[in-house]
Amino acid sequence: MQSSSVKYVFLVLAILLTALASCSGDKQDGKPHVYKGLYSFGPEIKSFSECGREKEFWVTDSSAQLELQYSQLNFEKPYEPVYVEVEGVKLPSDKDGLGAEYDSTLVVRKLIRITKVIPQDICH
């Protein structure tokens, strides 16, 4: 292959990778975003699944409201999913600790809504 052909292939690959990254929906830009999805909480799990996506995220509750209001819903057993709307940021997960098995961590800065009723039209 000629040098110009190689440059063209690399340019096309770079454009495709950039497009894929921007469509991935993982907003790890450090800016707060509103996330809607299912949250589960228990002794060893604090997870969030964004509506319309199959990825799960570890959750860190810097708002001090998410875990509190979840526990006030008085579930008989842990890990029951609830629908939440939160403001937060997604960051790469630590390599050690309970959240290490997750690729990303959702750091919740503000709880907007929490309910036992999971809206089927938004999150199914």
Rank of each mutant, 00 (worst) to 15 (best):
L66M: 10
V82G: 01
I112P: 07
K95H: 15
G52V: 05
S104T: 08
R113H: 15
H124R: 14
I112Q: 12
L17E: 10
K55H: 06
L16E: 08
H124T: 14
V89A: 07
L17S: 15
G97A: 13
G25W: 05
N74P: 04
Y83L: 03
G88Q: 02
S47F: 00
S62C: 00
F10Q: 12
E56R: 05
K36N: 14
E50P: 00
L98P: 08
C23I: 03
V84T: 08
Q69P: 04
Y79F: 10
G88K: 01
V108D: 03
F41P: 00
G97P: 09
Y102W: 07
K77T: 09
E67D: 12
S63V: 04
K46G: 01
E44T: 08
Y102D: 06
K55I: 08
S49C: 04
V89W: 00
Q72F: 11
A19K: 06
H33T: 09
S62W: 02
Y8N: 10
I45H: 04
V89I: 15
D94M: 11
A21S: 11
V12A: 10
Y79C: 00
A100T: 14
C23K: 04
Y70M: 06
I114V: 14
P81V: 08
Y79W: 06
Y8I: 09
A19W: 07
Y8V: 11
I118N: 07
Y8R: 13
R53D: 04
Q72P: 01
S4F: 10
R53L: 05
Y83Q: 02
L13N: 03
G25E: 08
M1P: 12
Q72E: 13
T18D: 06
A21E: 07
E101C: 12
Y35F: 15
K110I: 05
F57E: 00
Q72T: 13
